[in-house]
Amino acid sequence: MRNKKSYDILSDNELAILITSGDEAAFNEIYKRYWERLYVAARHRIEDSCEAEEIVQDIFCNLWRKRSNFELTKGFQNYFSVAVKFEVINRMAKKSRENRVKKEVLVWSSAVDESTSDQLDFNELQNQLAMTIRVLPEKCLLVFKLKHEKGYSQKQIAEELNIAEKTVEAHLSKARKTIRIRFGYLAEMAKSVLFL
Rank of each mutant, 00 (worst) to 15 (best):
T167P: 04
E124W: 08
N162I: 14
Q128T: 14
T178N: 09
L129I: 07
K166S: 15
G151F: 06
K147L: 00
I157Y: 02
H148N: 12
N123G: 15
E124A: 10
E160Q: 13
A158S: 12
L172M: 08
S153T: 15
E165L: 03
I163Y: 06
F122Y: 07
A175L: 08
G151H: 05
V143G: 02
Q126I: 03
F144I: 00
L146R: 04
L141Y: 14
R180H: 12
T178K: 12
L172I: 12
I157E: 07
A175R: 07
I163A: 01
K155W: 06
A130P: 00
I163Q: 01
N127R: 10
K139D: 10
L161H: 02
H171T: 02
L172F: 05
E138K: 12
T167D: 08
K145A: 13
K139H: 09
Q126T: 14
L161Q: 05
I157D: 04
K177R: 14
R134H: 09
G151Y: 03
P137D: 10
L141A: 09
K174H: 13
S153I: 04
H148D: 05
L141K: 15
R134C: 00
G151K: 07
A170P: 01
N127P: 01
L125A: 03
I179D: 00
E169G: 06
A175D: 05
Q128I: 12
Y152S: 07
I179Y: 03
I179K: 00
V168F: 03
E169D: 10
S153N: 07
F122N: 05
L136I: 03
A158E: 06
P137M: 05
I157R: 05
K174C: 03
I163S: 04
S153M: 05
K166R: 12
S173C: 12
K150G: 07
L172P: 02
S173A: 15
T178A: 11
V168S: 05
K155A: 12
K150C: 10
K145R: 13
E159H: 08
L172W: 02
Q126P: 02
A170W: 07
L129D: 00
L172G: 05
K155R: 13
K145M: 13
R134N: 14
A170Q: 09
I179N: 00
